[in-house]
Amino acid sequence: MTVGLVGRDATTAAFFDGAAAGQFLIRRCSPAGHASRPQVRQCSTCGSTELRWVPASGGARLVSWAVVPGRRGGEDDAPGPSIVVVVGELDEGPWWWSQIVGADPGSLAEGQRLRIGFEGAEGGEVVPVFEVA
C-alpha cells in the first residue's frame, strides 16, 4: 500500500463518500452544467456558486509525471518504494493530481489514456489514484 492516511472534513465529506462508492465526483454548476475541479468554491467557467456533485466518467489523459524515490525511515531504515505522481486531465476537463499505480514510469507518454481507480489505507478514507487505461 502506497497511499497515506487522510480524514474527512466538511469540504471533502461528499467527495470521500463518492470515492468510497467507487465514484470520482467533480462539480458542475446548476445554471449551465460547466465542469470544475472538486476543490472549487465557484464554477471555473461562469463563477456560479450553485454547484452540484456529479460523477466523472473516470477517463483521463496523462499530462505530466514525476518519480519520487522511496525515502529511508521505515522499519530497519530501509528505503520505501518509489512512487510515480501524475497530473491527469479528466475527460470532463479538470485536472487531478495523484499517484499512478501499477505503471512503469519508463513506459509513460504524454496524452496516454488513464482511468481513475481507488485505494484505501486502514484507518483513512478511500482516495482516487490513476491507473493505465
Binding site: 502506497t2 497515506g4 487522510v6 474527512r8 472538486p38 493530481w97 495523484s98 478514507e125 482516495v127
Partner: peptide, 11 residues
Amino acid sequence: TGWGGLLAATG
C-alpha cells in the same frame, strides 16, 4: 484532512 491532505495522501 482537507484537499491538501487528500493530495498528500497520494504523494
